[in-house]
Amino acid sequence: MRLRRRGASRWGALVCLFVVGIAAVQPAAAQSVNKRLIDSLNYQLAYVALPLTLFVEIILVYAVFKFRNNDDPLPTAEDPPLEITWTIATAIILLFVGVAAFTVLTNPYITPTQPTGGAGTGGARMGLADAANSTDSVTVRGLAYQWGWQFSYPGTNVTTRDELVLPANTDIYVRMTSADVIHSLFVPQLGVKQDVFPKRTTVIHTRVFEPGTYRGYCAEFCGSGHARMRTEVRVLPKDEYRQWLRNSTAENGSAR
């Protein structure tokens, strides 16, 4: 009897530590709005799924050991109140999961639309000074091809290959199309992933908090060079981005 009590106490302590550990874990600071939204949803679902999984497993283990030597099992007794309670609890959990996922999926950063005003759409009609000094949003046009990436900055003569340069803490729209087959731009650290199609424009909408260099990949098999189709996403503070844009424009102008 004492051994059983000690075993039960140990299992109870482990369960408590497990639950407390889950509750204490906090997501690391996200580098972008997109990553923050995705991480938040993942943790919300984990807080629901892990305790439920633990609860079911405990019941399963208990039933296996409790009734392992039962040679004359009785049929399960009907218990309508318990069945109703269980059904309602399940419905509430599923409703929570559905609402949480729907809220994230309909967010304009996760499911972006074309920019309808401001610097995001006016880049092609703006001069360098306006484009560089705009703080509303920045639009970059991307072209995927076998096997690389090309990015151009409307309102300037700047084009980069396999490097996407963006300002930090600014709404970014990357409008992309493909020159040949289906590609997909995936930047894991920024929570960004968008398929790119021929003869069609798709949009990435993001806002990056932390300046730095992030690795981007093609996440859609696109031929023999797929594995080496990579790009760097370089995020600069706003002032440094404006200066980079001016310097790149001046270099391209002098080269002509």
Results as ranks from 00 to 15, higher is better:
N107A: 09
G118F: 02
P237N: 15
T156Y: 03
R141Q: 00
L82D: 00
R2Q: 13
L74T: 03
L82C: 00
R141N: 01
L52G: 04
F102T: 14
P237Y: 15
L17P: 07
L50R: 12
M229H: 05
V181D: 06
G120A: 09
V158I: 11
F67W: 07
T113C: 06
T160N: 10
V20I: 12
F18M: 10
A101I: 14
I88Q: 10
F102S: 14
S40K: 11
L45E: 09
G155S: 09
P75G: 07
W147F: 11
A132Q: 03
I58W: 03
A144Y: 00
V192F: 01
P237I: 15
L14W: 01
A227N: 11
I110C: 10
G120S: 06
V208R: 08
A24G: 08
P167F: 13
G148R: 05
L74G: 01
A255L: 14
F65N: 05
V187W: 05
T106P: 02
A101T: 13
L95W: 11
D180K: 05
A131K: 02
V15D: 00
Y109N: 00
S134L: 06
A144F: 00
E163L: 14
K238Q: 10
R175E: 05
P198Y: 08
M126Y: 08
T135D: 03
F221Y: 13
P75K: 11
A131M: 07
I110W: 05
G212T: 12
L60T: 11
Y145A: 09
Y62N: 02
T156M: 02
T113W: 08
A132I: 04
G223C: 08
F221E: 15
I204T: 01
L164S: 08
A30N: 04
R10N: 04
S254F: 15
Y214C: 11
R36V: 02
T249A: 12
I58E: 00
R36C: 06
V208M: 12
L52K: 07
A132G: 07
T170P: 02
A100S: 14
R200D: 12
L3P: 00
T170Q: 10
A46H: 11
T121D: 10
D72K: 10
R256K: 15
L14M: 05
G21A: 15
A129E: 05
F96C: 13
N247C: 11
F151W: 03
A132F: 03
T139W: 08
L14Y: 02
I93E: 03
S32P: 06
V19C: 08
G118Y: 01
E57T: 11
A132M: 04
P211R: 14
L82I: 01
G253M: 15
R215Y: 02
G122M: 13
R68C: 14
R207V: 10
A77W: 08
F67S: 02
E83M: 09
P51D: 03
P81W: 12
V196I: 06
R125S: 13
N70M: 13
Y153H: 05
W11C: 10
G120I: 04
N157C: 07
L166M: 13
Y47L: 15
L54T: 04
A119F: 06
G191K: 02
Q31Y: 12
P211C: 15
R125N: 14
D195M: 02
T85G: 08
L128N: 04
R256Y: 15
R175S: 04
L95N: 09
W149Y: 03
E240F: 13
T116Q: 11
A144N: 00
T53A: 09
